[in-house]
Design a protein around this nucleic acid. Sequence first.
DNA 1: TTGAAAGCGCTAACAT
DNA 2: ATGTTAGCGCTTTCAA
Lengths: 338, 338
Amino acid sequence: MNGNAPTLDDVARAAGVSAATISRCINSPDRVAESTRRRVQDAIDQLGYTPNFGGRALATRRTNIVGAVIPSMANAIFAEGIQAFQEELSREKVTLLIGSSNYDPDYEFEQIQTLISHGADGLLLVGSNRPERTQRFLDARRIPTLNVWCYQPGSDQLFVGFDNCRAGADIAHLVIESGHRNLAIVSGICEGNDRAADRLAGMKQAIGAKGIDLSQVTVLQTKYSFEHAARAFDTIIAQSPRPTAILAGNDVLAVGLIERARSLGFSVPGDLSVTGFDDISVAQFVEPGLTTVRVPQVQMGQRAAEELLAEIRHPGSGKSVEMLTHIIRRGSLGPPSA
Amino acid sequence: MNGNAPTLDDVARAAGVSAATISRCINSPDRVAESTRRRVQDAIDQLGYTPNFGGRALATRRTNIVGAVIPSMANAIFAEGIQAFQEELSREKVTLLIGSSNYDPDYEFEQIQTLISHGADGLLLVGSNRPERTQRFLDARRIPTLNVWCYQPGSDQLFVGFDNCRAGADIAHLVIESGHRNLAIVSGICEGNDRAADRLAGMKQAIGAKGIDLSQVTVLQTKYSFEHAARAFDTIIAQSPRPTAILAGNDVLAVGLIERARSLGFSVPGDLSVTGFDDISVAQFVEPGLTTVRVPQVQMGQRAAEELLAEIRHPGSGKSVEMLTHIIRRGSLGPPSA
DNA sequence: TTGAAAGCGCTAACAT
DNA sequence: ATGTTAGCGCTTTCAA
C-alpha cells in the first residue's frame, strides 16, 4: 500500500456523494441510479481509484484469494496444471497466491500459515499426506481445502486427482510385458510424499504379481533432479546382473537416467529401457522419447478450481473427482537386450 | 477469511493482557517483559493464532506483499528465476503474488491492477516496453517497480537484467563465424515484447556488420510454442536457396525447429544448424544439444528481490544491475553443409 | 512495562 | 436512491 492511493472517501468527495454510494457502484451497480453511477465512474477513472483490498477483506470477511502450495516451481511438473487452475480462478475474479514447499512438510506448513493469514478463502494442496499438526491446523480453521495429484475414494477430504498406485502398476505391467524381468526402480523420496510412495507401491505390487522376486529389484529413492538421477544410474549400472529396464518415479528422474546412460555410452533402449511418469514436455524431446504415464494436468487444474470454488461458496458442495491417466509409448521402452 | 480464526482480542483474553501487548509481542518482542511474553506465546500457540493480514495492512499501510507479472507460467522460461526471487523474498517474510499476462499488454495491465489493489508494496515486471496507460498508472501510484530480463543504461527505471541486443548480436556472430552466410531468423512476436525485439535487432545488426545482405535473410515472427516453430520451419525449408542456419528467438522455438527438422528427415546440424536463446533445461536434453545464450536466471531473480526490497524500504536506494550472458556451445551448431 | 483509544478503508445494516 | 453509522482486526500514539 502506498500514500498516493485514493480512497473511497476521495472518490466520494470528488463525485459529491457518500462513500456508501461508491461502494454500491462497485459491488451492486444496479442498486444505484444511472446518472450517479456515471458521475461516480468518472470520478473513479479520474483518480485511478482501486479498492483497497485490506479494507474490503476486513469488512466482508472474504478475500477472494485462493492459496496453492506446490512442491516446486523450478521444474515443469506443476506449471501447466497451476496455470490452468489460475486461469479458471481469474475468470471468477479470484486471485491465486502461490507458495512452494520444496517438498518439505515443515516448509509446507509455513506456507499454509502465510496463505491463511493473508486471508485465503481456500487452499489447493498437492498430495494428501501431511503431518498431524498441519492437518489439525487446517481442520481447526475449517479452511476449504482440495488435494490434487492424488485420489482417495474413502476419504472425507476433497480430491481432484488420480490413482498413483494404479498408474504405477500400469507402467510396471507394460515393462514386464515387454519382456523385462530384471528391473530397477528409481523413485522420488517417499517420506512425506504420498504420490511417490503410491507410485512405488503400485510398481512393486505389479512386479510381485507377475512372479518376479521383489528382493532382486533394486529400489533407490532420490531427489527429483537430473544430477541425483545420474548418480542413481551409476549405482544401478554397477550391479550384476545388470537390470534391463529402469522404472523412474517421474520424468525428471527418467530424463536424468537417459542422459547419464547415453553419456556413458549405453544405448536406450538397446542396452537398457527407461520409463517415466507425468509426461512433462521434455518427455517428447529427449532422445529417445520417453515412455511415460500421461497425467491430465490441465483438466486437473481446471476441475480443481471449479470444485474448490464450489466448496468455498457452499461448503459441502465440492465433489471429489478421479481423473484417468494413460500410458504414452515412446522409444525409451523396448524389449530387453539379449 | 473465516469465522473460526482467533483474533488478537481472543489471544489477549486468553493471556489476560491487552490487545496492544499481544501486538507488541509479535512486532517488537523486546518491548515486552519476558514473563508476559511467555504467557502470550503460550496463548498464541494454544489458539493457533495467525495475525489477520487485512487488519495489519490497514493499520500499517504496508502489506509485505510483492507482486510479479510474468508473461507465461506454462513453460520453463521464467520458472527458475521466479523461484529464486520468491525464495529471497520469503527470507525477508515477504509474500509473492504472481500473475501471468500471456504476453498480452492489456492482460498485463489488468494483472498489475489486481496486484496493486491487493496492496502489493512493489512490482516485478518482465521487460520494460509497456503501453502508455500502464506506465501512467504505475507512475501515478509511485509503486516501486523493477524490470527484469532487460537492461537499459540511461533509464530512470530500475533494471536487473541483461542486454538482449548484445546477446542477440553475440550469437549471430558465432553462427557467422562458423561459416554460415545463408541465414533465417525465427523470432518471437516483437510487438509489445522488447526482449524479442532487442534480440532480433542485435542479430540483424551483427549480420549486417558482417556484410551479409539483410534483405536475403528471412525473418519470421511467431508465438512461443513448439507448434508455431514447426510451422515456421516449414516456411523456411521451402525457400531457395535454403538457409544453412536458423537463429531462434528463444529455446522453445529452437527446440520446436529441431524437432520438426528431424521429423522431416533433416539432420541437425548436418543439413542445418539451429541456435536458441535462454538456456532452459530442455536445451541440454534435445538431440543434438542446443547452442544457446545462457541467461543467469537464478542470480537475476535473487538480485531482483534484493534491489526491489531495497527500493521499497528506502525509495531511491534500489540500483539497476546489468547481468552478463554467455554462449553455451552444444551440438546444434556446426559448419554449413556443402 | 502495559493499557486505552483512535483510526486505517471498506461494507452492510439501518434510516431517510 | 442515497446517506449515516458501526464495526471488521490490527497497530500506534499517548497515558498511566
